[in-house]
Nucleic acid binder design. Structure first.
Length: 187
DNA sequence: AGCGGGATTTTCT
DNA sequence: GAAAATCCCGCTT
């Protein structure tokens, strides 16, 4: 798994489409499929790692395959998968997922049904109970695991600009599965 | 369908 | 002190 994630964030981000997340909670086990990602790295003015390592972003500079979770807007947690070699501050933001197992628990946790329960980075964190306590967690073991799947066909990968940033907005570093209803927003 | 504002706290300038 | 990799509600068209 580590090897799969060791490349540059913008190369790994499309390869994470179609991969699965397994989340074990006391109420049950949730399984979802990643349908939308964004890449962030050091040479990117929009990235937390752009101005070097700090207490907040230190996980981004660690080994690939860890979870980088940060808190923003006073109420939202955002989940990333760390990529690249140790010492490189890069990660892939998971923006939207599609439910595969235990949809009922997802809908209960979110008090929403359908795509609205999972089509945004803070939404999926709420659905999967991901918060600061999960920062730095190794995603190869429970209670939150990344399951690598064979890459989806490149003709199904759409590329666009990232959402919610104010610097380097032109960079085509957002990737999502074409025509998937769980993507947060199309082009 | 689209716009505007409020929630609420950590981080860095 | 202000912005932030956001979400949701309520109001207007």
């Amino acid at each position: 798994m580590n090897e799969y994630l060791a490349g540059a964030a913008e190369d790994v981000a499309p390869k994470l489409l179609g991969c699965e997340l397994l989340r074990q909670l006391p109420e049950g086990c949730i399984r979802v499929r990643i349908v939308e990602t964004e890449a962030y790295h050091e040479l990117d003015a929009a990235s937390h790692s752009h101005r070097g390592e700090t207490k907040r972003n230190s996980v981004m500079f660690g080994p690939a395959g860890r979870a980088y979770v940060y808190f923003t807007y006073g109420m939202h947690n955002i989940f990333n998968i760390v990529t690249g070699n140790e010492g490189e501050g890069s990660a892939v933001l998971v923006r939207a997922v599609e439910p595969l197992e235990n949809v009922r628990l997802i809908e209960t946790r979110r008090a929403r049904r359908g795509p609205d329960a999972l089509n945004g980075p803070a939404k999926l964190c709420q659905a999967l109970a991901i918060d600061g306590a999960m920062n730095g967690h190794n995603l190869s073991k429970p209670p939150l695991q990344l399951i690598i799947k064979p890459p989806i066909h490149s003709s199904l990968v759409e590329v666009g600009t990232r959402i919610g940033i104010s610097r380097d907005t032109y960079q085509p570093w957002r990737f999502f599965i074409a025509n998937n209803p769980y993507v947060s927003r199309a082009l």
